[in-house]
């Protein structure tokens, strides 16, 4: 179970990385929709960074070599 969750975390990080580098995030000239005045690329970038941090946190809890 521990190992599976860790592998899911690894897969999620790869998927998020690919999506971030896709036109979904890196859309040329796009700065809307805004959030709290922040342009699209900035708030989405911040959200992605926080999401990756959360996944890393979960990954740490279930890392197979945690207690080595």
């Amino acid at each position: 179970m521990k190992d599976t969750i860790w592998k899911i975390c690894c897969a999620l990080v790869i998927i998020i990385a690919v999506l971030t580098l896709s036109p979904l995030v890196l859309s040329e000239g796009k700065h809307k929709p805004e959030l709290m005045g922040m342009p699209y690329i900035l708030w989405v970038g911040i959200a992605i960074s926080l999401l990756l941090w959360v996944i890393t946190y979960v990954g740490v809890l279930f890392h197979p070599g945690k207690d080595d």
């Binding site: 990080v13 990385a17 690329i41 970038g45 960074s49 990756l52 941090w53 996944i55 890393t56 990954g59």
Partner: peptide, 21 residues
């Protein structure tokens, strides 16, 4: 411009996961 966030913060987040992996 603000794309600099992706350049560093996104790359750093990946690096942190890499440190664990």
């Amino acid at each position: 411009g603000v794309g600099a966030w992706i350049f560093l913060a996104f790359s750093d987040a990946l690096m942190v996961f890499g440190v664990i992996w």
